[in-house]
Design a binder for these strands. Structure first.
Length: 741
DNA sequence: TAACAACGCTTTTTT
DNA sequence: AGCGTTGTTA
């Protein structure tokens, strides 16, 4: 192996890579090459025979980051697959450890990891059983409280409520039952993965020492986003040599809502004596304009370590600030920009649209489908969270553990077996009284003739099927088992009978599930990993535009970045401000900073004057909006402002077909400014005049679309069937009556 | 019990 | 718009 890998590093990076003994804190600014440092450091440790690959614990924040890091490390050390087995996320590594010591916390090694939907369902069930009002105690809120306790390392018996927290008493009560239920079902949630590990490390010195001794070196990425329990997990694994290296950037801390504590990084040198601190301040990603714009924004935060990122790159284009009359115009601009200019020089893979909230992706999805640009939405709906996939997995789960009540309840009447709500409720009651799982309660009720005769036959068929499949599950492979179940349960037939496009795509998804299962050796292995799998799609295949939330974009970089929706209330998000005030604004600002610093060459920041919420059934769904404060906070030297607001009275459907370029005549930017000062509400489509002198059936002519006939009228908006263009919505003043002459 | 209509709430960010 | 919950009917 050649030693060139060190030569491509700058001095600070080299120091970081070559520091072997003792705690190391790397403060790495955005784009300063921290992944390179981490991967090279791992390789360097192995080259210098400081340890074996399997003695390195390397923790990343996402699976994506873990995969990328593994790939790069393996490349550096010559492709020995599985040479760094302990590289992964806190959750995946905890999963691995917990499988080995499950009994220590009263679980079987093949426990199931439940997802958020299951968590909420379980909490609902408990609330119902306890006769607690669901409306007054939303399961989501309770789940949030439980998660927070878990992030703080608190098991139910360790939670103490002060006077201000009386309202959490119900959550605490549920938490206790929730944990018991999970144990009974041999399930854990995401939080448990880490919490159980910590419990084991604390309770069993032998186990802890085993891992401490094994991990000669620990590396942690994105350290600014670790929370209390994750930090404790690390502290328990560090041995006396204190060879722990953490990398982070306080300006990129964006997970406080998940319990992330910046103080973990700020106090690191206090926790570990003789910490070596290295700052990486040279940026290798962005042009000077982008970097300066981002730096000027983040300098508005009070609580941060001042730092001076610098770049040897050219100035580049200024950051483009663009305003639009509504979200659709914004989407049209982005797609135009991509189609007209970018597509020539930039691969679609190098273009990203980063949004604050997931719902914003829809606007772009619709636009790209319409004009046929390939795109991918990352982290949207996860494959295994789809209904049909969860159903199929529930069958497998129930076969594996018949006391998995969540799985039981999900599929007992899916496909329909005429076992309705009331029957399920009865099973619940008996299960509670007899302290049985739903499955065993059903058997009990059959034996004791508690069901109505018809229901009994149906329930009996179901449980017998499950038992039969359970029996043969050890004889045939897991893929055949799934096929058999989908076939014999009537699930496939149910979808075929539906004859809808949705059902067809569900069948497709089940096929995909089937092929994805082949990657695993057996059913256990499949079930153990399915929940931690973010997506089974080959997400990064093909040349496509990337659409994702800013959170999901953490750690990634793109040639061109679009940031739509920079409006007060959306970015910064109102809910976050409501909940946490000033601290929240600072975190939102960091989020904007992360978003901006993803861009290498071109950065577009966009906002609309009117934003559509909750569909567009009626005009009330349109909300006037103001540009984000973050736009004002960026130093004007590095930005260029363009106003694309078309005549406000224009109909949004209609404007879809006009080119944006034709309209730079309205002083929208200045008007917006004025509106903010006067605190006036922006005039929006909602206030259009609401009458017209056209009638349904009348023939009309439109400048662009030619002749057509009115088929529906709503206020001053006409639905017209054009001869050439088909049905379109147009505002009345853009069409002329076709007079008899 | 199933099928369907009516209603109301949604959307912050994720392993 | 889309989903889950509630109410109505067969």
């Amino acid at each position: 192996m050649d030693n060139n890998y060190l030569n491509s590093l700058n001095n600070q990076q080299k120091t970081a890579v070559s520091h072997f003994e003792g705690p190391l804190l790397i403060l790495a600014g955005a784009g300063s090459g921290k992944t390179k440092v981490l991967t090279t450091r791992v390789a360097n440790l192995i080259f210098n025979k400081k340890c074996f690959g399997q003695q390195i614990l390397c923790v990343t924040f996402t699976n994506k980051a873990a995969n990328e890091m593994r790939e790069r490390v393996l490349k550096l050390i010559n492709n020995k697959s599985n040479a760094v087995p302990w590289l992964g996320t806190f959750h995946s590594l905890s999963n691995k450890i917990l499988r080995k010591h499950a009994e220590a916390v009263g679980l079987k090694p093949n426990f199931t990891i439940i997802d958020t939907l299951d968590q909420i369902k379980l909490i609902r069930n408990i609330l119902e059983a306890e006769n607690i009002d669901i409306k007054q105690n939303p399961p989501k809120q309770i789940l949030y409280n439980i998660d927070r306790w878990k992030n703080l390392g608190l098991v139910p018996s360790n939670v103490t409520l002060n006077k201000a927290e009386v309202e959490k008493a119900i959550s605490l009560k549920i938490y206790k039952i929730y944990q018991e239920k999970l144990k009974m079902m041999n399930c854990v949630d995401f939080g448990d993965l880490i919490l159980h590990c910590v419990t084991i490390f604390q309770k069993f010195d032998k186990i802890r020492k085993f891992y401490q001794n094994n991990f000669k070196y620990i590396l942690v990425d994105e350290f600014q986003d670790t929370n209390f329990i994750q930090n404790l997990w690390l502290q328990l694994l560090v041995n006396d040599n204190k060879n722990i290296c953490v990398v982070g950037d306080d300006d990129q801390s964006i997970y406080s809502w998940r319990g992330a504590e910046i103080k973990n990084i700020l106090n690191f040198e206090k926790n570990f004596k003789n910490t070596k601190i290295i700052k990486l301040e040279q940026n290798y990603r962005s042009t000077k304009n982008i970097l300066s714009a981002a730096s000027s924004l983040i300098s508005n935060n009070d609580s941060r370590h001042p730092k001076k990122l610098w770049s040897e790159f050219s100035e580049g284009d200024k950051v483009q600030i663009q305003s639009f009359s509504d979200g659709l115009q914004e989407a049209i601009f982005i797609s135009d920009q991509i189609e007209k200019t970018l597509i020539k020089n930039t691969k679609l893979n190098n273009i990203a649209i980063l949004v604050r909230a997931a719902f914003q992706t829809r606007e772009f999805e619709e636009r790209f489908i319409r004009i046929g640009l390939p795109y991918r939405i990352i982290g949207g709906l996860k494959f295994y969270e789809r209904a049909e996939i969860k159903d199929a997995v529930s069958y497998l789960r129930l076969i594996k553990h018949t006391n998995d009540d969540l799985a039981f309840e999900r599929i007992i009447n899916q496909p329909k077996r005429s076992i309705g709500e009331s029957s399920v409720k009865k099973i619940h009651e008996v299960a509670r009284k007899e302290r049985l799982s739903l499955f065993d309660a059903s058997l009990h009720m059959i034996d004791n003739k508690i069901f109505k005769p018809k229901t009994e036959i149906n329930v009996n068929n179901f449980v017998q099927n499950i038992l039969t499949w359970k029996k043969i599950s050890s004889e045939i492979d897991h893929v055949s088992l799934l096929e058999k179940i989908l076939d014999e349960s009537g699930y496939t037939q149910m979808l075929i009978n539906e004859r809808s496009p949705e059902a067809e795509s569900r069948l497709e998804n089940l096929k995909e599930l089937r092929s994805s299962m082949k990657v695993y050796d057996n059913l256990d292995e499949f079930l153990e990993n399915i929940s931690l799998q973010t997506s089974l799609d080959e997400e990064w295949d093909g040349d496509k535009i990337n659409i994702m939330t800013v959170h999901a974009a953490k750690g990634l970089e793109f040639e061109v970045v679009f940031l739509p929706g920079l409006e007060e209330g959306l970015f910064p998000h109102q809910k976050s401000i409501d909940d946490n005030g000033h601290a929240a604004v600072e975190e939102e600002r960091r989020l904007a900073y992360v978003a901006m610093t993803r861009a290498k060459n071109n950065l577009f920041m966009l906002f609309a004057n009117n934003r559509k919420f909750f569909g567009n059934k009626n005009v009330d769904d349109w909300m006037p909006s103001m540009p984000s404060r973050f736009i004002d906070e960026i130093d004007k030297e590095f930005i260029e402002i363009t106003d694309n607001v078309i005549n406000e009275n224009n109909d949004f459907e209609f404007s879809q077909e006009i080119q944006v370029s034709s309209s730079k005549n309205s002083p929208g930017w200045l008007r917006m400014k004025k509106n903010i000062e006067n605190k006036e509400r922006v005039k929006s489509i909602a206030f259009c005049e609401n009458f017209t002198n056209f009638t349904v059936g009348e023939g009309v002519k439109h400048e662009d679309f030619g002749e057509g006939k009115i088929i529906h009228i709503e206020g001053n908006k006409l639905l017209i069937n054009f001869k050439k263009y088909g049905e379109k919505k147009v505002i009345d003043k853009f069409v002329m009556k076709l007079s008899a002459d």
